[in-house]
Nucleic acid binder design. Structure first.
Lengths: 368, 368
DNA sequence: CTGAAAGCGCTAACAC
DNA sequence: GTGTTAGCGCTTTCAG
C-alpha cells in the first residue's frame, strides 16, 4: 500500500533521482550496470510510475481513447477489436469507454480522455443521425461510423456498397422476388437499403418488397418474420430474403426452418454487415464484410497519422504556429461479399469454427 | 488546439485561480453569480480540466479500471456491462482495457491503471488455471472469474452449481441417457461438469457419457457434434445433450435440426452459462444464469466497498497506520435455471427479442 | 554520465 | 467568499 516513488528507487539503488528518470525514459543514456541496479531496486520496491505526474511533466502518452456507444452491440465490438489490434501494432495503448447509449456520457468520457492526456480519441457516436461535431478538442479525433460534412477525420463502413453487392449477388443467384427487411430508423440499414435499391432498379422484372421490421404489427425480430414468411402460400412466397442486418437474417433463417422450410432450397436468405455473432446458425449466412473490424483499424491508422503529423508540426513549430491546417479526411471502408450456403453459393456447410478460420483477419474469436 | 488552463478561465471570468478551482470542486463555496460567470468563461474558452494535474494534486479519481482478457468473448462482455452499470450507479467512471489473451499486456494495463490513479481495478485474468496474484498494488483490486486461496477480493460465477441445476433439471425432465459435451481444458466447463457429475451420481440408472469436444477426432464445435449425434440409431441415441457452454449447446441444436431431428421432441438439449449470444436459435435454449453480468456487478460493489473503506481508514489514519487488514472476501455468484423450450419445459417458443425482455436485469441488448 | 533545480496544471490549505 | 501559496511525482534542462 505504501506509495513508493522515484526518489525511493533512487535511494535504494544508490543513485540520484534524475538518473532513475533517465533510466526509465532514455535508457541509452544510462550505463547498463547502473541501469540494472535501478531495475532491481524498482523490482524490489514494486515501484509503479505515476502516470499522472509523468503526463503533467512530460507531454502526451502513447495512449488512445475509444468511446463506444454500447458494449453489447456487434459492430462496436468489432471496432474495438480492430482498433486494439492496430493500436498495439504501433505501440499504443487503447482504453475503452462505454457511453451506454447516452450522448452526455459520451461527451463525459471524451473530456475525460482529453484531460488524461491521451494522444488521440476515437469516437463511435451514440447519435448517428443528426450528429454535430464536438467543440474542437486539443487532440486529434477520429469519428467512426458517421457521415458528416464538417471538417474532421471520419471512417465509415460503406453501407451503401454493402447493400449493392449483396443485392447484386441475389440477382446473380436468380432471385425473382426479394423481400428486404430492416429497421428504417437505423442509418446503416437505411443506406444498405438504398444501395440494394440502386441495384434492383436495373431489374424491373424482379419484384422487390421492403418491410420495416420495426413498424406496425410487424414483429421486430427475424425469427418472427421468418415464420410469417413461411405462412405465405408457396406460389406467392418470395424466393429470397435480404436481411439488412445479419442478426435479422439469421433470425429469419431460424424462423423459416422452424416452420419446415429449407434454406436455400425453398428460399435464399442473405444478411449484411459481416457480423460473426450471427454466423452460428444451421446454415452459413451469405453476407457482406468486413465492417467494424476494418473501421477500427483504419480509424486508428488515421488517428496515429494525425498524431504524428501534429507532433512533427509541434517540433518545428517556429514557422507555422498559426497555420493549423483543418485536416479533413473521409475514409469509406469497402466491403466484399461472403457468399455462403444460405444463398446456395457456398462450397458447403461448415461449422462456426471453420467459418471464422476462413477469414482470420476479422479476428472473430470464439464467442464461447 | 490552444491549451486553455484554469488561470485563463480565471482571467476571462475576472476572478482568481482559486475561485475557479473552487467553483469546479466545491460549487457550494462560490457565490452562484460568480459561478455563472466562471461557467460562461469555461464554455467560451472550451476549457477542459487536466485530469493528470488534478490527480497529482488532489488524490484519487472516481474512476475504475477493468482489465478484460479479450473483447470477443461473451462472458467478458457481460462482465463489462454489469460492471459499467454498477459503476455508473455509484458515480464512478469505468475504463476498459483489453489484454487480448496476453498475460504481459494484462500486467501492463494493470500498472497503467494504477499509475493513472484510478481508485480501483477489476481484473478478469487471462490465465485462470495456474494463476498467481499480482504484486500488491497500491489500490484495491478485485479478481473476477478465478478461484484462489490467496488473500484478496474475488468474485466468481458458481460454475459447479450451474452444472448441478442444469443436471438436476435434466433429471427432472426424465432424461435416461445424457451426453455431456465440453472442453476439459476450460476451467469453467470443468467445474460445470463436476457439478453435473455430483447430481448424476445419485441416479446410477441414468447413463451419462462425457465427451471432450476438443479431443481426438471429435470436431470442436457443437454443430458437428449435433450432426454426429444425429447419425446414431434412434434406439441407441441419447435422449438429452448437455452442452457445458451455451454456444456449444446452440451449435448442437443447429446440427441436430439440420439433420432432421426435432428439439426437444427427439432429444432435449441444455446449455450452461446464460450466454445471450447463444439465444438466437430456432429453439429457446434451457440454460443456467446469470453469469458474467452479475459477476461484474458484484465485483464493482466489492471494489467500491473496499475503496470507501480504505478512504475512511485513510481519513482517520492516525491510529492504525500499520494495521492494514488484508481484506479478503470470496463471492460466489449463485445461478438460477432458465428452463425453456429446448428441454421441453418452456411455456412456448419466443423470439430472441422477447427472450431478453424476460430478464431485463441481464441487460442483454440487441446484438444487432 | 550524474545531481540540483524549475516547472507541468491543479487542489487544498491558508490568510485576506 | 475570495485571493495566495505550497506542493502532488515526474521530466528536463543545465551545470558539474
Amino acid at each position: 500500500m505504501a506509495k513508493v516513488k522515484i526518489i525511493d528507487v533512487a535511494r535504494e539503488a544508490g543513485v540520484s533521482l534524475g538518473t532513475v528518470s533517465n533510466a526509465l525514459n532514455h535508457p541509452e543514456k544510462v550505463r547498463p550496470e547502473t541501469r540494472r541496479l535501478i531495475e532491481e531496486a524498482i523490482e524490489r520496491l514494486g515501484y509503479t510510475p505515476n502516470h499522472s505526474a509523468r503526463m503533467l511533466a512530460g507531454g502526451r502518452s502513447a495512449t488512445l481513447g475509444l468511446v463506444l456507444p454500447r458494449l453489447n452491440h456487434g459492430p462496436s465490438l468489432q471496432i474495438a477489436n480492430g482498433a486494439h489490434t492496430e493500436a498495439r501494432k504501433h505501440g499504443y495503448d487503447l482504453l475503452i469507454a462505454n457511453a451506454d447509449g447516452d450522448a452526455d456520457l459520451e461527451r463525459h468520457y471524451n473530456r475525460y480522455f482529453v484531460g488524461t492526456q491521451v494522444s488521440g480519441v476515437l469516437i463511435n457516436p451514440v447519435e448517428t443521425s443528426h450528429w454535430h461535431p464536438c467543440p474542437t478538442l486539443p487532440v486529434p479525433v477520429v469519428y467512426l461510423g458517421i457521415h458528416s460534412d464538417e471538417p474532421g477525420l471520419y471512417v465509415t463502413a460503406d453501407h451503401k456498397a454493402q447493400g449493392r453487392i449483396v443485392a447484386a449477388h441475389l440477382v446473380a443467384q436468380g432471385a425473382r422476388h426479394v423481400v428486404i427487411i430492416g429497421h428504417a430508423s437505423n442509418q446503416s440499414m437505411h443506406l444498405r437499403l438504398e444501395g440494394a435499391r440502386e441495384v434492383f432498379a436495373d431489374y424491373p422484372d424482379i419484384q422487390v418488397d421492403a418491410v420495416d421490421a420495426g413498424e406496425g404489427g410487424v414483429s421486430g425480430d427475424g425469427y418472427s418474420l421468418g415464420q410469417q414468411i413461411a405462412q405465405i402460400a408457396a406460389d406467392e412466397r418470395p424466393d429470397a430474403v435480404f436481411g439488412l442486418s445479419d442478426v435479422l437474417a439469421a433470425g429469419v433463417i431460424a424462423g423459416l426452418m422452424a416452420a419446415g422450410l429449407r434454406v436455400p432450397d425453398d428460399l435464399m436468405v442473405a444478411g449484411c454487415g459481416g457480423n460473426p455473432l450471427a454466423w452460428g446458425g444451421a446454415v452459413a449466412l451469405t453476407t457482406s464484410a468486413p465492417s467494424g473490424y476494418e473501421v477500427g483499424r483504419k480509424g486508428v491508422q488515421l488517428l496515429i497519422d494525425a498524431i504524428e503529423l501534429a507532433a512533427e508540426r509541434d517540433a518545428g513549430r517556429l514557422g507555422a504556429a498559426a497555420g493549423d491546417e483543418p485536416l479533413t479526411q473521409r475514409e469509406l471502408v469497402r466491403p466484399f461479399l461472403l457468399a455462403r450456403a444460405s444463398t446456395g453459393s457456398s462450397s458447403g456447410v461448415l461449422g462456426t469454427a471453420s467459418q471464422s478460420a476462413l477469414i482470420p483477419e476479422l479476428n472473430l474469436g470464439a464467442y464461447l
